[in-house]
């Protein structure tokens, strides 16, 4: 698999580190709502189809990427730097 890092260009899968589901929202840091923390830490939609997920280009520029990838075909629909994607509200 090749991932087109927005910074480095297409690179081999081996350079990337999977960081998991990107759809969860972290509760307010001071929240004491255990259920909310539980849902954030432990549950995921785990879809069969397009999946919003984070990867880190650990063996390259070190940036985290927000990727939409199909879990049935492994086809990558989009890649963005997580920082800019989150900042611009493009997050799923």
């Amino acid at each position: 698999m090749l991932i087109s890092c927005p910074h480095c260009g297409p690179r081999d899968l081996a350079e990337f580190s999977y960081q998991g589901d990107a759809t969860r929202t972290r509760p307010e840091p001071a929240s004491t709502d255990t259920k909310a923390w539980h849902d954030y830490v432990y549950t995921r939609p785990n879809p069969a189809g397009p999946h919003h997920e984070y990867w880190q280009h650990a063996g390259g520029c070190r940036a985290h990427l927000l990727i939409v990838r199909d879990t049935l075909s492994h086809e990558i629909h989009s890649v963005a730097l997580a920082r800019s994607a989150n900042a611009s509200g493009a997050r799923a």
Partner: peptide, 10 residues
């Protein structure tokens, strides 16, 4: 320049 890796070597 390129930042890359060969297994454990960054």
């Amino acid at each position: 320049g390129r930042a890359t890796a060969h297994h454990d070597f960054f």
